[in-house]
C-alpha cells in the first residue's frame, strides 16, 4: 500500500494536533547548513521524498551532526544517494532530540473492529516488552487518559532519570489527533508515529518520525 512522505505524514498529523519536532525541508547542502545554524546543534539530517519509506535500512538518516561541516557532508551524501525511483527529494533537518524515553503511537485497522488508536512503550526493547494498548476510533479524552493509565510500565511515565514526568495532556492530544485523523479520512489504513520521544525539557511527547499509509 502507498505511503505518504515523512513530510506529508507529519503535516497531516500536525494538522490534527500531534506535536511535531520543529524541522526544515531544504533543497541543498548549503541550505541544510543554514537551517542547522538556525536551530542549533546537534541536528539530524534525512533524505525526504514521496517514495522513500525505509530510510534507516537504506542509510538515509544521519544522526548527531555536531557542526556545519558535518551537516554539509551528510546532506551532500544523502542527496547523491537518491535513486531515480525516489522521485523528487529534499533534505530534512531537525534538532537531535535525545530523551531516555520513547513511546510509539499509531492508528491501525483491525480486521474485526475497524480503525483503532494504539499507544505503546517504544525504544529498542519495545518488541520484547509488548506494552501496548488499543481503543476503537473515535476515542474520547477519557478513553485517551485511560489508555495512558493502562500501560504497564507506569514508572516510565513518571519522573525518570532526572527527566520530568510525561506531559499526559500532550500525550492525550496525540491520541485524540490520531483518532480524528482516522475518523476524518477512511482511506488512511495505518499511521505509525515512531518514535514519539518524551522531551527531557518539559516531558512533552514529540513526534520525531511518522508514516501514514493510505489505501491504493
Amino acid at each position: 500500500m502507498p505511503t505518504l512522505s515523512e513530510v506529508e505524514s507529519k503535516r497531516l498529523l500536525a494538522q490534527h494536533g500531534v506535536p511535531m519536532l520543529d524541522e526544515q525541508i531544504v533543497p541543498t547542502a548549503e541550505a541544510a547548513v543554514a537551517a542547522a545554524n538556525e536551530m542549533g546543534y546537534p541536528v539530524v539530517a534525512k533524505l525526504n521524498g514521496d517514495a522513500i519509506a525505509h530510510k534507516t535500512e537504506r542509510g538515509l538518516v544521519k544522526l548527531n551532526l555536531r557542526d556545519a561541516a558535518s551537516v554539509h557532508a551528510a546532506a551532500s551524501e544523502l542527496l547523491s544517494a537518491a535513486t531515480p525511483d525516489d522521485g523528487e527529494v529534499q533534505v530534512l533537518v531537525a534538532p537531535m532530540l535525545k530523551g531516555n524515553r520513547e513511546l510509539i503511537a499509531g492508528m491501525l485497522s483491525d480486521e474485526q473492529f475497524g480503525p483503532t488508536v494504539m499507544l505503546g512503550i517504544g525504544g529498542v526493547l519495545a518488541e520484547a516488552i509488548q506494552d501496548v494498548v488499543f481503543r476503537l476510533v473515535p476515542i474520547t479524552e477519557i478513553d485517551a487518559h485511560e489508555m495512558i493509565e493502562e500501560l504497564s510500565t507506569q514508572k516510565l511515565l513518571g519522573e525518570f532519570r532526572g527527566e520530568p514526568a510525561v506531559d499526559r495532556e500532550s500525550l492525550v492530544a496525540v491520541l485524540l489527533g490520531l483518532s480524528k485523523l482516522a475518523a476524518a479520512d477512511p482511506k488512511i489504513v495505518s499511521v505509525d508515529v515512531n518514535p514519539l520521544i518524551v522531551s527531557p525539557l518539559d516531558g512533552r511527547p514529540l513526534a520525531v518520525d511518522a508514516l501514514v499509509e493510505v489505501a491504493s
Binding site: 480486521e111 473492529f113 483503532t116 494498548v133 488499543f134 476503537l136
Partner: peptide
Amino acid sequence: LASDDRVFDGM
C-alpha cells in the same frame, strides 16, 4: 475469526 486480543481488550 478472532482479533488481536489487545484490540479486544481495549474494546
